[in-house]
Design a protein around this nucleic acid. Sequence first.
RNA 1: GGGGGCGUAGCUCAAUUGGUUUAGAGCGCUGCCCUGUCACGGCAGAGGUUGCGGGUUCGAGCCCCGUCGCUCCCGCCA
Length: 619
Amino acid sequence: MERRPSEIKKSRDRRRSAGCDYGIEGKTEMKRTQNCGELRAAQIGKKVTLAGWVHARRDLGGIVFIELRDREGNTQLVFDPQHNKASWELAQSLRSEFVIAVEGQVRQRPEGTINPKLPTGEVELLADTLEILNPSETPPFQIDESGGAQAGEDLRLQYRYLDLRRPSMAKNLKLRHKVAKTARDYFDANGFLEVETPILFKSTPEGAREYLVPSRVNPGKFFALPQSPQQFKQMLMVAGVERYFQLAKCFRDEDLRADRQPEFTQIDLEMSFIDREDMYALIEGLLAQVWLAARGEKIPTPFPRMPYIEAMERFGVDKPDTRFGMELVDFTADFKESKFKVFRSAVDTAGGVVKALNAKGFACATQGQIEQLTETAKSFGAKGLAFIKVEGGEWKSPIVKFFSDAEKAALTSKLKIEEGDLILFGADQREIVWEVLGRIRLIVADILKLERTGWNFLWVVDFPLITFDREANRYLSTHHPFTAAVAEDVPLLDTDPTKVRGQHYDIVLNGVELGGGSIRIHQPDVQKKVFEDVLKIPADVAQSRFGYMLQAFRYGAPPHGGIALGFDRLLAILCGTSNIRDVIAFPKTAKAVDLMTNSPAEVEPKQLRDLHIKLDLES
RNA sequence: GGGGGCGUAGCUCAAUUGGUUUAGAGCGCUGCCCUGUCACGGCAGAGGUUGCGGGUUCGAGCCCCGUCGCUCCCGCCA
């Protein structure tokens, strides 16, 4: 709410009469000697100068306390009329977020007034001189964890420069810097060169939708912002760089999520003359360094590895959260002869499976919760969600009457069924069952508030090189078309391509995909074969899109491989937030809008004319 | 593109089944008082187009339709 003019005048007069000089810009004799987080008992008696923002004002009438905040912490200032009348009078006019500089003497706080909640709480600064460097309007939300953290996110984004003053946000920025620095030092120590790759790149319609940039000097032609520096980093290997890394900005014009922004940062790297084992060791070393620097924790290496198919069979996802059990158990063989038609027909269909998981202690699920789980199951393609509640020594379920004793025995032993358990079933094509039970597992874990602590790093390996895409009715690369096949599977490329495993690896932490990469194809004939014979990209299209790569590979491309880690996601995990926006200084909203600068925005007609662009906003 | 949630004072929220006050509270803000506070305290006060537009009704913050914004999810996206 805006203030009425008379009030504004009044408050200005108040500030003026209190001695705030608006006439001199940035001219001050006072230079800070310390930050607001470092004063301790050892400095008692010392004359220091602090500068910062007024965090809190406690005016007791005779004596005025100001809590001064800067990046490093808070220090209490004392303005005492008996010590210095002029600065005490000026201190009356201080308000939240005024920027001030103060000179004074560090002194021990009197008996009983030590504040153990403040690192600097043993001492205070008795102010001699006060200079108001800049007044502040009343901020739209309070710059602390009780105000800012609870303010609506749109408000925080609009006033991002205030939100970032909050200690918890400042902490995230600092941690981001620290992790970036740690990564750079680590790569430097391991012989990597940081090389910048172009932001103005070529459109590569495979994969994510791209941001396009029109070229003024080439009418009708466009750059695209890179989804990742993939092709450049491979070219750097051909260029003999051998070890490249970059904190690379990437862009994707897709719909946003809590963990997805239109522009984001990857720790991107590529190495020549290596195999998968080298990559695992390198990244394990990196993450160990990062965890040590960011959290002071030692994480055990090497990380466990799990084949893709095992991840899917046991957890229903290719990025399993292994911090808790509730694994999927297969009963396809046990229900081969079942009288229960739903299970029987699933088993009888090619590719059909019956799987179940035991939601331990969830027999108390309400009708509503069961219905909600069923709805979830249906939304992922299941026809329904069969369940058994184990309550009062009884199996309560509409389907249990169809089960034979042998089937019941199999369930009991494999699922370790006990009183109070809830058994949930999936019976369908195995991909559907994986997805449904994989999602249900996570939802139930949330409902039951299962304890999920620790850092479960995991390499997921042996992904299929290509997957059949039902929508497009053709084979697509699981990772990307530059991924090399596992050597022993190469002969299958012609006969049974879906059986071919790629030399692709994902690094997963606590159910979050941190990153992924692969050993690449470096032989031009193999790459051409993948484009044209396996992925069925027409030769002319492959040529125009990737021709330069195929050509480059003909000039002695070294064997190479790489990986990219989601830097923002990594930071979110380290900062303990599920919201990627909390670790990005200036993020965009779910509609890809920057609320602080109000972009994107319209441009001048002349700009469009220069770019040979006509708008058609009707369609 | 689809589905869910939210939108009331500067901020966070309340407001019984659609029906008595002038739409309330806490924080913040303004003024006065207060010399050891640190969530300072006390007294007084200002502050509202209930996101916006339409409709139903004797009567709408509440119901309906549309629209805008924020958010979560699906699709999409490594």
